[in-house]
């Protein structure tokens, strides 16, 4: 499948932003008297990442000016649900943050609701892909699980970095939580890679029904140059580098942040190490998300083999 830059950026940045918002939903329990600056920076970063991703996601649309229509079909469409949930999360989280920041009135249940909505939004993002039966690699419950776990791990890493920025050090407990969350997310992704079925669900034989007679292969394509279907569904570039990119994704997205957290524990100067951890993690996630699209094969290509 064609990896659209806007969609890769959207899923990575909105994912981390909503992950941070999830954690902030429980912040009242940690410190009800958090400073204005603390809240402003935390909520500001969470909202900025989520909103930047959402705006970016409209860039691949043919008619972005009609994007509001995508909020209407939440009863049937995961893409629509994702849009509705994202807006509900931002409204609910916005109210929660503003009441806390400007009226010193942290409403804990509003925070919990924001946290739940943030999780549901990321789940819906994963389901947009997991619902597509024609792409066998995606058509699994494990797909939204991975989206969710990466969102939480990314959010936790951001939280850890900000914690170090405000309090000088990240602390052993939060550091350990972040490392465990990264480990769980990448373990799930590893499982996702390991359990993929390489045999396509549909073959030229089932696509044409001619498999009942014998071995079927394309003799002449219906068009002389690549069409929309080939460009969107027949994306091949980079598949030969898939193994290297997978190592790069794991290295930058998982191993390097853990090493940097350990370095912060060992040498101090936490915020610098952790800022670096956030940056390499996001770079690794961009590689992971690029592979998510580029590696996926679509059933329609059975008509072209």
């Amino acid at each position: 499948m064609h990896p659209a830059n806007s969609v890769i950026f959207f899923t990575v940045f909105s994912g981390a932003g909503f992950g941070l918002l999830f954690l902030l939903g429980f912040a009242t329990m940690a410190d009800e008297n958090a400073s204005f600056l603390f809240l402003f920076v935390h909520f500001g970063i969470a909202f900025a990442m989520a909103v930047a991703g959402l705006i970016s996601s409209t860039f691949h649309l043919g008619h972005p000016e009609r994007a509001w229509r995508a909020l209407t079909q939440w009863r049937s469409s995961w893409l629509s649900r994702e849009g509705v949930l994202a807006i509900l999360t931002l409204l609910c989280g916005g109210a929660y943050a503003l009441l806390w920041m400007f009226f010193f009135n942290p409403i804990a249940p509003l925070g919990w609701l924001t946290a739940v909505l943030a999780l549901l939004t990321v789940w819906a993002t994963g389901m947009i892909y997991a619902q597509i039966k024609a792409v066998r690699l995606w058509y699994r419950l494990l797909t939204p699980v991975c989206y969710l776990l990466f969102s939480l791990a990314g959010g936790m890493l951001l939280f850890l970095m900000l914690h170090a920025a405000f309090f000088g050090e990240a602390g052993p407990f939060l550091s350990s939580v972040a490392m465990v969350m990264l480990l769980i997310a990448w373990a799930a992704k590893w499982w996702w890679w390991r359990t993929r079925g390489d045999a396509p669900l549909s073959t030229p034989g089932t696509a044409t029904g001619l498999g009942a007679i014998g071995k079927t292969r394309l003799l002449e394509a219906p068009h002389t140059s690549d069409n929309y279907l080939m460009k969107e569904m027949g994306f091949q570039i980079g598949r030969k580098h898939a193994d290297k990119l997978r190592l790069l994704a794991i290295g930058l997205g998982g191993v390097a942040p853990v090493v940097l957290i350990l370095m912060a524990r060992a040498f101090g100067g936490d915020v610098v190490w952790l800022l670096l951890a956030v940056i390499v993690h996001l770079l690794g996630m961009l590689a992971e998300r690029w592979l998510f699209f580029a590696e996926a094969k679509h059933a329609v290509m059975a008509f072209y083999r």
Binding site: G62, K133, A134, S202, L229, E232, M233
Partner: peptide
């Protein structure tokens, strides 16, 4: 008139029956 040109329906169709128009973006 309602299509936003997101292309998800073309991804969902296993038969490749839908094509985005290069000029109209629907």
């Amino acid at each position: 008139d309602w299509c936003i040109g997101c292309g998800l329906c073309a991804w969902a169709c296993p038969y490749g029956a839908r094509e985005m128009d290069g000029a109209e973006k629907v």
